[in-house]
Simulated scan of single mutants.
Amino acid sequence: MTMAPETPALIDPFARAISYLRVSVTDRCDFRCTYCMAEHMTFLPKADLLTLEELDRLCSAFVRMGVEKLRVTGGEPLVRRGIMTFFRAMSRHLGTGALRELTLTTNGSQLTRHAEELAECGVRRVNVSLDTLDPDKFARVTRWGRLPQVLDGIRAARAAGLRVKINTVALRGFNEDELFRLVDWCGSEGHDLTFIEVMPMGEMGEDLRLDQYWSLEDLRTRLSERFSLIELADRTGGPARYVRLAQTGQRIGFITPLSHNFCESCNRVRLTCTGELFMCLGQEDRADLRAPLRRSSEDAVLEEAIRAAVSRKPRGHDFDYSRRAVSGQMSRHMSHTGG
């Protein structure tokens, strides 16, 4: 049974209850995916990052205020030193019933090391970013990644009892030819699969973004040439919309921030590893929570800052690729806010 929040729920100006927090625990990653970050990134000084204890205090404040789902992201969250200490700390909220789900998004590279302990902390499912099953193409899109390492990590997660959902960014001219291969592989392995439209984030240049953009409308049309798509009302607390493939029973998700945005039902905010709260992935407005966190040991001060930030949450973002032009582009890299 989910416990009621200890303080009044977080409600934004459009009457949306904020029940989902995505927290980036590091901006560092052992990959350099082309749509996420530059090859030669300048990462934050470690001194600028919130400590694991500070992340605990911040996330616990959100849980008290009604957050029921906590997703840990990066960068690559599992490369942060001591990160399992944070997962163990957050697991206490699962024990009380205040937190309904503790999960993470990962590139899979470190799952072989950490899958069993994640399961012991109460993590029940993980999202693994995987855009291709071709080792050469995988090396090209991740720059530094090795596909066998990720596949080993996925197997370790399954062996530990974790459900795996594969997140695939739809990239025109890159993985269009693998649409059915990815669907078939996920079906044979028992993984759910979600396709994501590439978003205009990071200083990559308009031409590259437009060249990469593959509308999920087109992807769905191609999928329907082989499968009958049954619309589902499933919701997992995130932005995906789901169909079931009648022929195989598989569930396929679509995250469409550009062709069909999902802002009207947005229930989430994003906390960076430096304590900035982004109320919308597609807007630059942010709130500094590190200052009140460090200024006072009184949680009431922190909760007041969180509530003030949520009161500025916009109706939606401005991402748009229509008319072959990028609108609403964000200069920060995706790794900064954790996706």
Rank of each mutant, 00 (worst) to 15 (best):
D56F: 05
E76G: 05
L50W: 01
L70M: 10
C33Q: 09
T7K: 01
V79D: 05
F62C: 06
A9N: 03
C33P: 03
H40K: 15
E53P: 00
R32H: 06
D48S: 15
L55D: 03
K46M: 07
M84T: 15
D56S: 14
E53K: 11
S91V: 14
R32C: 04
P77Q: 08
R80Q: 08
G82A: 11
E68N: 10
K69S: 03
V63Q: 04
T26S: 03
R32N: 07
P13T: 13
F62L: 06
L70E: 06
S91N: 12
R81Y: 02
S60N: 08
P5K: 01
E68Y: 06
Y35L: 11
S91D: 13
G97Q: 13
G74S: 04
G74T: 06
F14V: 11
G74F: 00
P5T: 04
P8H: 09
V67F: 02
M65R: 10
L99K: 10
V23L: 14
I11N: 06
R88G: 02
R28F: 00
E39W: 02
L99F: 07
D30T: 14
F43L: 11
A47H: 08
R81I: 02
R92C: 13
D27E: 13
L94R: 14
G75W: 00
I83Q: 03
F43W: 15
M65E: 15
L55C: 10
C59K: 01
R81Q: 14
T7Y: 10
L94G: 12
F87T: 12
L50K: 05
M65D: 12
T26F: 00
L58R: 03
R64V: 03
R81K: 15
E76L: 06
Y35C: 07
L70H: 01
F14P: 08
E54Y: 03
P13R: 09
G66A: 08
L21F: 01
G66T: 09
G66L: 08
T73N: 02
L49D: 12
E76V: 06
S91Y: 03
P5I: 07
L55Q: 14
E53Y: 01
L70I: 14
I83H: 05
I18E: 07
A4K: 12
R92P: 04
F14C: 11
R81S: 14
S19F: 03
V72R: 01
K69A: 02
E6M: 07
L52M: 09
A89H: 10
